[in-house]
Every structure is written in C-alpha cells, then in structure tokens.
C-alpha cells in the first residue's frame, strides 16, 4: 500500500530537500514500518526521529492524518499521510 510521509522543514536537508516522500509497503503498515522504510532510504532523517535504541525522540511528534500517533505500533490506513513535526517544546 502507498504511504506518504510529510517532513518538517528541518528534516528536508537530510532527505535531499524533499518535503514529502512516497513509500509502497506491504499491508498492514504501522508507524514503525514507515519509519523503518524512511530510515533505510534517508538515514539522516531516521536517526533524527528515533535514537539508536529504537525510541522515538521525546520532542518529535508523528501524526497519522490529523491524529497524533501514540506509538510505533499505530496502524497507518490505506492512503493516509504520516507527518513528522517537532513538538512545541524547547528552551
């Protein structure tokens, strides 16, 4: 199934400047599956979303459609978009 990933501006330099990326993955597809594919294609993006222990970084938010994904196990529906955004946090 096709999944579209939309990237925050800060991540685009690590994806060759792309604002969005298309992936074709075997269903069912979880958020973690999409991040795996994204990290394989663009390692610099992948390591900014997840640390090397596999945890999604604390101040990174993932949205499936308009809903915030509670975790990597969240299923991504057919034709849905996964959006990666920085959390409203910082100092």
């Amino acid at each position: 199934m096709k999944v579209v990933v939309r990237l925050a501006t800060a991540l685009r330099p690590y994806a060759g400047g792309a604002a969005s990326l298309d992936f074709d993955l075997p269903a069912p597809v979880s958020v973690g599956d999409v991040i795996d594919a994204l990290a394989k294609a663009h390692p610099g993006v992948g390591r900014r979303i997840r640390d090397e222990a596999g945890a999604i970084r604390r101040h990174v938010n993932l949205f499936v459609g308009s809903e915030k994904a509670p975790g990597a196990d969240t299923l991504v529906p057919e034709a849905a978009e996964l959006t990666v955004l920085p959390a409203v946090s910082g100092g």
Binding site: A10, L11, P43, G46, R47, R48, I49, V60, S89, G90
Partner: peptide, 29 residues
C-alpha cells in the same frame, strides 16, 4: 545536540563554511 532531533557530530574542512555529517549510526551505541 538538537532539542528535537538529537545529537550528531559534524565536521568541516573549510573552517565552518560548510559542514558534513557522518553517515548513519557512526556515533551510536
């Protein structure tokens, strides 16, 4: 270290005019 995107090591051979990052996982446990 980016508060959002985590840590990385960068290098520059032109005194900071441009920066390169190691490939994935190069400074990782």
């Amino acid at each position: 270290t980016s508060n959002h995107w985590g840590p990385s090591v960068y290098r520059s051979d032109d005194l900071g005019a441009s920066w390169e990052e190691p490939s994935a996982g190069t400074l990782a446990f």
